[in-house]
Write a protein that binds this DNA or RNA. Structure first.
Length: 113
DNA sequence: GCCTTGACGGTAA
DNA sequence: CTTACCGCCAAGG
């Protein structure tokens, strides 16, 4: 029963980490996955975000891919919804790509730990 | 029950 | 430096 519970915990862990992301900061799927010990399963983090759509307090718009591109902007109900949210927090977005991504990158294993 | 797709990432060529 | 392919895990068809 441990394995099934851990799987569920993985999703819950993702929600918790994303929830700790401060405004004006962005993180990546790989960073979260690596923080959870599944650095090779960054895709699952993205899948968890889709499930997080039903959760509250999950700033999924702050979670993007390692390229700094708003890969899941289409899942926010609008092509510019995610970009608008980031810009509203002070994050400059250019062509669906976060500017100064390296400067705004929030690493859970570096700042949260 | 098997195959394909998917909010990714890293390494190889 | 850019492009291509494979790998991980889960869910939908």
């Amino acid at each position: 029963m441990a394995e099934s519970d851990e799987k569920r915990n993985f999703f819950e862990n993702v929600y918790e980490v994303v929830r700790q992301v401060p405004s004006g900061r962005v993180t990546t799927y790989g960073a979260i996955a690596a923080f959870l010990g599944a650095k090779r399963s960054a895709r699952m983090v993205g899948w968890a975000m889709i499930s997080s759509h039903a959760q509250a307090g999950i700033p999924a718009h702050r979670v993007i891919n390692r390229n700094g591109v708003l890969t899941g902007k289409h899942f926010f109900g609008g092509p510019d919804a995610m970009q608008g949210l980031l810009e509203a927090e002070g994050v400059e977005v250019e062509n669906d790509q976060v500017k100064d991504f390296d400067r705004l990158f929030w690493d859970p294993a570096r700042e949260l730990l």
